[in-house]
Nucleic acid binder design. Structure first.
Lengths: 142, 142
DNA sequence: GTAAAATACTTGAGTTGTCAAGTATTTTAC
DNA sequence: GTAAAATACTTGACAACTCAAGTATTTTAC
């Protein structure tokens, strides 16, 4: 019952990611954030006017539009993000980084970086580039 | 609001894995399997006597023991795995690959391999090795 | 040999997503 | 300019986990 090495690799990837996710969730829980909450705040902070369409947010995280709707609802309720409409296209609803979200991102970012460093202690810049390229083969597709 | 490259890499990894998981779930759903169901069957098929303690299964997938309990329950109900106790240690309950599970694994394995090949079309053995080493930095920890 | 610690597993309650379907709006193509 | 297709988003129903706490058993250490 053998499988080829690409599939084996994907099994390893899945395992690693499961552990990483749980670890980051645990570390960030002191801020009341999940890993993906953090990632949403991060992408919003980089975006022009610190806002993104829900669908672009979905693309950046690899989630579905539905998932983004679910995630943003409680974040909006506690003032991390707010909602803004687009004058030219009534279908669109932006997620905007709210002051509370910006503050929380600033507070939590060091924690996230430490968690990353703990996870990959000796990850060098060169290696990262190569790996990221590889991951783009998937990330870029969808 | 910049972050270091290790954290950025982890964000890419998370995105890729989210997409991979959804894709595999979709492909395997024609067999009534989720991605992790498939992985459980696969690990059981490789194990001595095709059985594993729940906790070892948890370790192999990167899940918690609780998660394994939840996953195995429906799989047991439909005859993919069965339960076996350990005579020497009454705490232990093995998950055993049942005939139905073995058959389903054999049927689905090509689908999973194709999904893997589609995801990383030109993944060479060398690259895999490097990336897998890196992933062991986490996978090995827990 | 017994108390304390560790291990294996399960369960209740909650979270974080998924998919399929539906609504509203915009774009395309003729 | 209008019908059909595409796009953006939301919702109901559900799946696949998590953590914290609990039970049962085994191991450790004195």
């Amino acid at each position: 019952m053998n499988i080829n090495s690409t599939l084996k690799f994907i099994l390893n990837l899945a395992k690693a990611q499961t552990i990483i996710n749980r670890r980051f969730d645990a570390k960030l829980s002191s801020y009341g954030l999940g890993f993906n909450d953090f990632v949403i705040l991060y992408h919003l902070s980089l975006a022009p006017h610190q806002k993104l369409r829900r669908i672009d947010l979905a693309e950046k995280l690899g989630l579905t539009a539905s998932g983004i709707t679910r995630m943003l609802a409680p974040m909006e309720k506690i003032g991390l993000v707010s909602r803004e409409s687009n004058e030219r296209d009534a279908r669109v609803s932006y997620a905007v980084l709210a002051p509370g979200g910006k503050r929380l991102l600033e507070e939590s970012i060091k924690t996230a970086e430490h968690a990353a460093a703990d996870t990959f202690p000796e990850l060098k810049t060169k290696k990262i580039k190569k790996l990221s390229e590889l991951l783009n083969e998937i990330g870029g597709l969808l």
